[in-house]
Design a protein around this nucleic acid. Structure first.
Lengths: 132, 132
DNA sequence: CTGATACGATTACGCCTGTAAACTGAACCC
DNA sequence: GGGTTCAGTTTACAGGCGTAATCGTATCAG
């Protein structure tokens, strides 16, 4: 209990990869207009403004974003929290590939040298917290 | 260097979720005929044999499976290793959601209570190995 | 030899995605 | 007030995915 509260995203609606890039921009700062979102993602993806507008609309339809009128335009705000999205995606991966258990995932990252010394240190201290 | 060797999967070809279920069956046991794959996945997904055949064909096209004639039918064998696939998918997720660093992923799993006591114990012992 | 079978290959089809152009209506400038 | 501009809405369209049915043919039973 305690944690997920009204997570938006009605039904089994999922956020696609392109849509996710838009969400990231709005998780960094919101509310933003379509044009501002365009600028924000401009660094990563080379999208026309039209594309950004399409993605915003789809996200609104999916219940992932709220709109607030600001004169003749809209400002967009996330309705789902990044932590919830990230948690959901992580769990999906762990379920699909590691039978729902996190240790094998961790083992995999470790084996494939995907863990930096800093990662290891951080994880270790997290472990200490968990254990007590 | 040293690690991934000839990974199959030409180009940016990706394995879809349905296709992945087929791969799992073949990673458990191979080579298998289409009918055998159908039986193997029968428990998880409720697919007609036709669907299984479609997925097998697509996987062959993508370079993820090899075929070996056995009389009038084919036997299918994975061309990519499960470890490579799993590693790739894991890295994709970590890159997309955690800036490529594993510690935040771990922190997330920990926070969302996705770690069992056993997970924690296992990870701890993995950490010990890594440290020395 | 001939009909029934068992396979892979071909075709189907609607939905989602990525990527955008065209349309439409309101607001603003002269 | 009329044209220009800007924003959202509608339409587009190819490619991937999930899910099959159908077709063509090689083989097997009788």
């Amino acid at each position: 209990m305690g944690g997920t509260k009204a997570k938006g995203l009605l039904g089994g609606e999922r956020i696609s990869e392109a849509e996710h890039a838009v969400m990231e921009a709005l998780w960094v700062r919101s509310p933003l207009s379509a044009a501002e979102v365009g600028e924000a993602v401009g660094g990563q993806r080379d999208w026309s403004l039209a594309t950004v507008k399409t993605l915003l609309s789809r996200l609104v339809t999916k219940g992932a974003l709220a709109t607030e009128a600001d004169g003749r335009r809209f400002l967009y705000t996330p309705l789902i929290e990044r932590a919830d999205y990230v948690g959901g995606e992580s769990r999906r991966l762990v379920d699909r590939l590691f039978g729902g258990r996190a240790a094998p995932l961790f083992a995999h990252l470790a084996e494939s040298e995907a863990l930096s010394a800093q990662d290891i240190a951080e994880i270790e201290s997290l472990l200490q917290e968990l254990k007590q």
